[in-house]
Nucleic acid binder design. Structure first.
Lengths: 344, 344
DNA sequence: CTGAAAGCGCTTACAG
DNA sequence: CTGAAAGCGCTTACAG
C-alpha cells in the first residue's frame, strides 16, 4: 500500500506567516471585529485572503467554538422513520438558520439504542439549541438540566411543564380519543388497532395512542381483544398484509385505528383490494395527518395538526438563542384535532 | 422579567477542586488512559465520580475535540425529503457508530440554499467522516479537497472518480434508460414524465432521470412533448392531481415514468380512481424502489437497488475512519436495476 | 501513582 | 492600526 502524506489542515498561524501578519489580524479579516471596530485596511485584507485561497484554509470548528462558547449549530431530534412533518420542520429550521449563518443537524432516533448516542450531542454541547419532537425517549429531568446549563430547547410534549425551556402542547391524547369515540359513535364495536412495535411496553408518554384506544373502548364497555392489536404501523407492507389478514377472518373488524397515517393508507388499499368498501365495510382512521391522506380515495379520516407550519415554534427557538439572559419557559400550542374526511 | 442566573456548566477544574485531585486525574477517570496504562485506583475514582454526579458534569465537546483532533461524530448527507432508503442508511450508520461510541447526524439538503450551510459542517470539521448520497449538490473538486484534509468520505456518485475518498457506483443512468426502453418496447409512444421541480435547470449529474427519459425517446425518434413533462414528483398530492389531469386530456399518455416511486404510486391511484386500468390503460414506472411499491395493486415496476442494505458502504466508512494513514480511494457497487413488476 | 504544564485552533481585551 | 498574550476545556507526555 502506498504511504500517504499525513493530511494537512492549515491553521490561522500558517496564514499569518504567509501573509506576514499576526494571527489576530487573520482572525479580524476572516471573522470581523467585535463591536463594529474598524476592520483591517483593504491592502492587509487582500494579502490575508490571498494566503487563505492559496492554502485552502477553512476555519476549524473545534477551536472557534471552544473560544466562542457556542457552536452555531442547532438540532432537530425526531423519532425515525422521518415523516412529512419532521421533514417540514427540518426545512423550516434550515431556512431560519441559514439567514443567521447557523447550521442544522437532524437526529433521527431509530431503535431504542440510539437514544444515548444522540443525547450526547445535546449533553456535550455539540449544538446551541434543539427542537425535540414527541416520542423521543428523553428523560424529562434531563431536559431541565440541559436547559439550566444554557441549551435552548423547544420541546413538543403534552405532559412536561416548561422549566427553562418551552413546551409545545399538541393534546394528542384528547385527539386520539376523539378518533376512537368517532368510530364508537358510528356503531363500531370490533375496532382493530395498528400500533408501533413494542408500543405496549413503552412508558406512558410514548404510548398515548394505544392507551387512548384502550381507554375509550373500556369506557364504552367494549372488550379489548388482543388479537385486534397488531404491531405493524411502522411498515407499510406489514400493515397491508395485516389488514388483508384481518379481513379474511370469520369475524373481521369493522373499523381500524392506525398509529400512523402511512399504515392507515395501506389499510385502505388492503380493504379496496379485498373488495371491502371503505368506510362501508371497513372504516379507517389514521393518526398524524400527512398530506398523502388527502389524496387517496376515500380521503383519510385522521388526527393531527391542521397547519403544516412550524414557524412559531422555530421563531421561539431563535428568540431563545438570541436572548442575552435565560428566558422563562413558555407554553405554546400546536393542537391536534380529529379531522373527519371520508374513510371513517 | 426575572433576572436569571447565568447558566453554569461545570468543568473538569471544578470536579478536580471538589474531589481534591488534579484535572489530569479527572480526565484519566472519565476517559481512561492512553495505551492501556493503569487507571487511577478505585478510591480516587469514586471520589471523582461522586463529584461528577454532584455537580452534573458533562464533558465539553469543543474542548475535547480540539484536543483530540476528532469529533467522534459522522454525518449522512442526503437530498430532502427523506426516503425509506435514507432512513435505512441513517439507521445502519447509527448501529455501527453506536458500537464504537460514535454519534451520527443527518444533514437533509432541502432547497438549494441549504447547500452552503450544510457543507460548512464538513468543511469546518464538525464531523470526522460522512456518507454523501446522490443528488446532493456538492462540488466534486471540493470533495477531493475535504478528503485530502483527512475527512473520511464515502460518496454515492456515478461520474466522480475516487480520489482519497470512496465512490459507490449505482449506474442510475443505465437503469433509468432501461425503464424507458421497457415502455417503448411495449409499444408506448406517449410517455409522460413526472419530474423534480426545476430538474430541467439542474446541472448534469442531478438531472440523470430527465436526461435518460429524453435520450431514449430521441433515440427512438419519439418527440419529447413539453406538456408531458410535469414537475410534480416531489409532492404526492400534486402527482395525483397531475395524472388525473393527464387522463382527462383528449389524447392521454399511455405510460408514465416518475422520478420518484412515491409519485408513481399516486399515479397508479389516480389511474384507478379515474377508471383507467394499470398497466392496460396506463403503464406506470417509478424510480427508487421503495418498499411501498411492493404493496400496491398492481405492484410497481421501478428502478433501484434490490438490496435494502448499506452495510458494505457503512463498513467502508469505518475502515477509513479507523485507518492510521489515508486509504486510497476505492470503487464500490450498489447497482440500480430495472425491476419489472406489474404496473408496466 | 499523581500533578504541573503544554498545547490543540481560535478570538479578543489590551498595550503599544 | 497591529501584535503579543491570555484563555476557552480538554488530554497527555513528562517529571517527580
Amino acid at each position: 500500500m502506498a504511504v500517504t502524506e499525513p493530511p494537512e489542515r492549515p491553521t490561522q498561524r500558517d496564514i499569518a506567516r504567509r501573509a506576514g501578519v499576526s494571527t489576530a489580524t487573520v482572525s479580524y479579516v476572516l471573522s470581523g471585529r467585535r463591536g463594529g471596530a474598524k476592520p483591517p485596511p483593504e491592502e492587509t485584507r487582500q494579502r490575508v485572503m490571498r494566503a487563505v485561497a492559496e492554502v485552502g484554509y477553512q476555519v476549524d470548528h473545534a477551536g472557534r467554538s471552544l473560544r466562542r462558547r457556542r457552536s452555531d449549530l442547532i438540532a432537530l431530534m425526531y423519532p425515525a422513520p422521518s415523516s412529512p412533518w419532521s421533514d417540514r420542520l427540518a426545512e423550516q429550521m434550515q431556512e431560519a438558520a441559514a439567514e443567521r449563518g447557523l447550521g442544522v443537524v437532524a437526529l433521527p432516533m431509530s431503535g431504542s439504542a440510539a437514544g444515548g448516542a444522540l443525547l450526547r450531542v445535546l449533553r456535550e454541547r455539540y449544538v446551541d439549541g434543539a427542537v425535540l419532537l414527541p416520542d423521543c425517549p428523553v428523560d424529562p429531568d434531563e431536559i431541565a438540566v440541559l436547559a439550566r446549563q444554557g441549551l435552548s430547547l423547544v420541546v413538543f410534549d403534552d405532559d412536561l411543564d416548561p422549566d427553562g425551556f418551552d413546551v409545545v402542547r399538541q393534546g394528542r391524547g384528547r385527539a386520539c380519543r376523539d378518533a376512537v369515540e368517532h368510530l364508537v359513535a358510528a356503531g363500531h364495536r370490533r375496532i382493530a388497532y395498528l400500533g408501533h412495535p413494542g408500543e405496549d411496553r413503552w412508558r406512558t408518554a410514548r404510548s398515548v395512542k394505544l392507551r387512548s384506544y384502550r381507554q375509550v373502548l373500556q369506557e364504552h364497555g367494549i372488550g379489548v381483544a388482543p388479537d385486534l392489536v397488531l404491531p405493524v404501523a411502522d411498515s407499510r407492507p406489514d400493515a397491508y398484509a395485516a389488514v388483508r389478514g384481518l379481513l379474511r377472518r370469520a369475524e373481521p373488524p369493522t373499523a381500524v385505528v392506525s398509529a400512523t397515517d402511512r399504515a392507515a393508507i395501506d389499510a385502505v388499499w388492503a380493504a379496496r383490494d379485498h373488495g371491502t368498501a371503505v368506510p362501508g365495510g371497513l372504516a379507517v382512521t389514521g393518526i398524524g395527518n400527512i398530506p398523502e391522506g388527502l389524496v387517496i380515495k376515500p380521503s383519510l379520516t385522521t388526527v393531527g395538526a391542521r397547519e403544516f407550519d412550524f414557524s412559531a415554534q422555530v421563531a421561539r427557538l431563535f428568540e431563545r438563542l438570541d436572548a442575552a439572559a435565560a428566558l422563562p419557559g413558555e407554553v405554546m400550542a400546536a393542537r391536534w384535532e380529529l379531522i373527519v374526511r371520508e374513510s371513517a
